[in-house]
Design a protein around this nucleic acid. Structure first.
Lengths: 192, 192
DNA sequence: GACATTATTGAGCAGGCGCTCAATATATTT
DNA sequence: AAATATATTGAGCGCCTGCTCAATAATGTC
């Protein structure tokens, strides 16, 4: 019954971590059960014993973006600081990889129920994080917004769009320019 | 050598049109050569005689968005009218389907060379269309922008983000609200 | 020790994919 | 009509996918 191995984590958890690693490595589309079991050092049967692939994939995907959200929106920070953290983590090289995963997730969500849930959860988590900053900034009197939720929606959407643009190697935009555009839009919306 | 059939279009063109239809019907991920040949009423061998699947798929995808661009950015319209057409065609039910295709294309572009080219072309076509409107509006004195290209980039990115948000059934936003947000952002950027 | 229970394996299945190629139908040329 | 060239077919190949299941190892119980 005990599932501990020498390194102290269960095979089940090991498989989940391997899935996360594979997703980050090859993306959602190219990730396969065999790649995961190989990475986890585990037989193919064990994965299917613990998980169904669509669920495992969505679970791992969700955990990745939960970690992103925690990085981008740390708790207990004043709105000013939180906003700066938001800008700082917006267009890092890592964010580039995450955005590729995000895009694949969004497109899979149309046909995969588990992914659909995961994407919805992650999206509301991330957009909610930004909305919280704007709202608490209002409360603190840092800025005044007639409709903080609407503003957050527009700025979040702009972020999504800039990230997508940055992903396309065609556009001659780099991360610094993307961040500048994001800051400019914030300036126009909240007058920071 | 003549390729005319009773309806006057070549089998090759017939296959291309069938591919477009299949893409619009089931999306990029689920589209298969067999679905296309069946729709075109043609043997599987013929498709492979005329095309390689990745190329055909990218070609059809590109034609879809070329049509979208022509719809969204008609030629010879004054900037004011063009902008109104842009708003009007932005979040129609059709645009919803197109956006799904767009998302799938963007995620495929990472691993598919043909799709990468098609996506880059379509993106520059669409963003260029918006930039043209803003620039010619400047020339006509309808509005004054210090950096029309940058403004177009932000507004285009915002549009992308809003469309993605609209695709997610989780967000309680509808097409009318999305258009309202888009208009509001235009108002803030160009003071229309 | 013997037994029962759980954890784990991996060869193999069923299904789907793009694509080939020998065979056939159709068209063109002489 | 015969010969040549082109257009088209579809059964089938090789590959990859998620997943099953009888067999095996490991562990717990008495």
């Amino acid at each position: 019954m005990s599932a501990g191995t020498q390194d102290g984590i269960s095979r089940q958890e090991r498989i989940l971590q391997a899935t996360i690693a594979v997703l980050l490595d090859v993306g959602l589309r190219a990730a396969t059960t065999r790649a995961v079991t190989e990475k986890a050092g585990v037989g193919t049967g064990l994965l299917n014993h613990y998980f169904r692939w669509p669920d495992l994939r969505a679970l791992a995907w969700g955990q990745i973006f939960e970690a992103v959200a925690q990085d981008q929106f740390p708790t207990d920070a004043d709105p000013q600081m939180a906003l700066e953290q938001y800008f700082a983590t917006s267009f890092t090289p890592d964010a580039h990889r995450f955005w590729h995963l995000w895009t694949e997730g969004a497109s899979l969500a149309a046909s995969d129920v588990a992914m659909k849930d995961a994407v919805e959860t992650a999206r509301s988590r991330l957009h909610g994080g930004l909305a919280n900053i704007l709202v608490s900034g209002c409360s603190a009197g840092l800025w005044h917004l007639p409709d903080p939720q609407g503003t957050a929606l527009r700025l979040g959407a702009l972020y999504d769009g800039l990230a997508g643009l940055l992903l396309s190697s065609a556009s001659d935009m780099n991360a610094a320019q993307a961040e500048a555009h994001l800051r400019k839009a914030f300036h126009q919306e909240i007058g920071l």
